[in-house]
């Protein structure tokens, strides 16, 4: 499969003589169509990394290739077309005065003509299930609805990559789940590559691969299952311990023999039921 993101030896410091690097020699690559979760403590460099990928921050050292194209001053605007970003605070990315106006913002910037704009805005709103809200003002929407609008505003530009920069962290559980289901659903229909920066264990579990950041460095890169086995370290990575692992630990304490490897909640449920039925 083709490589869509390739990051080579990226370093970045917020202040010039700051010995503490926000990004410290980070390298990784992402294949077309992958879902990657980037986890780590607050301040570990996750958001700095995300903002480097579309040239909002310019790294001190290193190179970034998006879809084989090197990120430079000349290519930055073209590369931004291919990357859609959704940020943490729903309030701070709502530019338009109504839902439809906000979705159209990116199209206006790309000088799309009016008729095409109307059509594409409509399609994007349908994709995120917000068509009924086209004329609503942001103050009348919930956080989850605002994030779906933000997603529509990104989808309307038909990007190849979507970066979710802690975009579910300020939402209630229902809004969060709807947002994740929506992204998963869209991936069924379009060839989207997703990078999600998160503390949410469920969001991380949906990923094909986890990148763990600490102190500006990329410390681990693995399948979520492999990482979820190391319950103790998860908290240090800024994640929760998955429920199934917590239950397994509690059961072990009470003298029940549980499988050693990581089980998902469904697998755990199946295992418990099987054991109960045997008894």
């Amino acid at each position: 499969m083709a490589e869509i993101i390739n990051v080579k030896n990226l370093s970045y410091a917020y202040q010039e003589d700051d010995p503490k690097l926000a990004l410290d020699n980070v390298s990784f690559s992402v294949n077309d169509g992958e879902w990657i979760a980037i986890v780590g403590h607050n301040g570990s460099g996750k958001s700095t990394l995300a903002k480097s990928l579309n040239g909002i921050l310019v790294p001190d050292e290193g190179e970034i290739f998006i879809n084989q194209e090197k990120l430079t001053d000349e290519t930055v605007w073209h590369i931004r077309d291919e990357i859609g970003m959704i940020f943490q605070n729903p309030e701070n990315q709502f530019v338009g005065s109504t839902v439809a106006d906000d979705v159209a913002f990116g199209l206006e910037n790309h000088q799309v003509n009016h008729d095409e704009m109307v059509r594409r805005v409509q399609t994007a709103l349908e994709q995120v299930g917000m068509s009924d809200f086209a004329d609503h003002e942001p103050s009348k929407l919930s956080g989850g609805q605002k994030q779906r609008v933000a997603l529509a505003g990104v989808l309307v530009l038909e990007p190849k990559i979507i970066i979710l920069d802690e975009s579910t962290s300020m939402l209630d559980p229902l809004g969060r789940q709807e947002m994740l289901d929506l992204v998963a659903d869209l991936r069924q229909q379009y060839p989207l590559t997703v990078l999600s920066i998160t503390h949410d264990i469920n969001e991380a579990a949906q990923a094909d691969r986890l990148l763990v950041m600490d102190d500006g460095q990329l410390v681990t890169e693995a399948d979520p299952r492999d990482i979820f086995e190391k319950s103790q370290q998860l908290v240090e990575m800024g994640l929760d311990v998955p429920f199934s692992s917590q239950l397994a630990m509690e059961l072990k304490k009470l003298g029940v023999a549980v499988p050693d490897h990581y089980l998902t909640n469904q697998e755990m449920e199946a295992w418990v039921w099987q054991s109960l039925s045997k008894g």
């Binding site: 903002k51 970003m85 159209a104 913002f105 199209l107 910037n109 000088q111 505003g153 530009l157």
Partner: peptide, 20 residues
């Protein structure tokens, strides 16, 4: 935050835009 979000969506000041 807003200026970052606008830039990420391709906004460049003083360039022509169309209107929804």
């Amino acid at each position: 935050d807003l200026s970052v979000a606008m830039e990420a969506r391709g906004y460049q000041p003083d360039t022509p835009r169309t209107h929804y």
